[in-house]
Design a protein around this nucleic acid. Structure first.
Lengths: 209, 209
DNA sequence: GATCTCCAAATTATAGATAATTTCAGTAAT
DNA sequence: ATTACTGAAATTATCTATAATTTGGAGATC
């Protein structure tokens, strides 16, 4: 958890900035100036620019040629859009993963869910939730799909960090259990249906732009 | 069609390389060396590296730290994966676009379809096909979703250019007409169903890795 | 008082140079 | 013959410097 050894400086900067954006340390709409960031990381601005490109690909920043990059906004519409995309893709992944799911995988997913129930802060809860989804979807064996889902998950996590309510935890865990029990029963359609609803849920209250 | 005015050198290089990869001028698996490309474009390697990052985000190249960049492969599995992702996302887009589709838009889509029937080469056919899809999906008003679909379309186009058969044209145009007539009849489910099957179709013959 | 113009400071984009790593051919050892 | 080493050449990643563009404000004009 220290400086996170990473091969290239660009990827280290990219990871660090991503975390700051997701956790809200850098606000939506804030402008990111390459020289300032370069100075902070003790690097030149070249790797910073490459980090920007990666963040742009993830949808965490938007870049206008010669006018700099700023943190992507997340209005309610944008959050919903990401959630719906993720729902569609996770359903696809689940249908391909289902035939390869083993008892051991489902047990591991259940353990991840329990870890989420015990989580005391947002980070831990988010991590457990991520694990759950990754566990049941990875066996689909579609790397590009999984990467897209992961990127969408990261973007969606901004919502969690911006306004998380402890009450939201219970329904999530219930959904997870429902998905597991449907999968154990071999009812993929039911599991997919719960998963789609579960992922699309972006909280009860409208959020500001 | 000349030098394609573009704001930054990086984006010009990125576009040019993308086209070469899609059309097969650069083969799958080929290594891209930044200095060589920089020299060819009369630029330094910094914008080349940024172009690489964009291509990586589009899924046209894969990059390993300190080991260079190579053109992404497209095995049958990968092509299928992209097609299924695109099907899932286009269905989502269509369901959101449907309420906003006007007579004029559907007529324009029909015109695009006719242009495709008259197309004499792959480029023209691809362009018409792209227009058709863009026309009926754009009204969904979900920019991130549309961008993802576009990227997937570009990747999928590699298949067209690698082995296109004139016979594939007719079924495609028939699918397009079926989608239009379902939309005109207000039967969104039917349109979505045809669209999903249509997009997932990757040709009758298994392709080599 | 509001708007426009123009200039300086800040910022982005690219170039050229350097350090660090990988690749690979050629040679030696088994 | 095959495998393991070695070092030069090629290549990637980074830094420093420079050119080009944008931003923001001071002063002029209406």
């Amino acid at each position: 958890m220290t400086t996170a050894k990473s091969d290239t400086i660009a990827s280290r900067i990219s990871r660090e900035l991503a975390e700051r954006i997701v956790t809200g340390v850098i606000a939506a709409g804030a402008r990111l100036r390459q020289d300032h960031i370069a100075e902070e990381f003790g690097a030149s601005h070249v790797p910073v620019r490459e980090a920007f490109r990666r963040l742009e690909a993830q949808g965490l920043v938007v870049s206008e040629p010669r006018r700099g990059v700023r943190v992507a906004g997340f209005s309610l519409d944008e959050v919903k859009e990401v959630a719906e995309m993720r729902a569609a893709l996770e359903v696809l992944a689940l249908r391909h993963a289902a035939p390869h799911l083993t008892r051991a995988i489902l047990d591991a997913a259940e353990a991840a869910n329990h870890a989420g129930e015990k989580a005391v802060d947002v980070q831990a809860w988010d991590e457990a939730n991520r694990s759950f989804h990754r566990l049941i979807l990875s066996p689909c064996g579609m790397p590009r799909l999984l990467k897209s889902i992961d990127d969408l998950q990261v973007v969606g996590a901004r919502l969690l960090f911006s306004g998380w309510r402890a009450e939201w935890e219970a329904p999530t865990d219930r959904d997870h259990r429902a998905i597991l029990s449907a999968l154990r029963a071999g009812d993929v359609d039911q599991a997919a249906s719960v998963l789609a609803r579960h992922v699309q849920w972006v909280g009860p209250s409208p959020r500001k732009s």
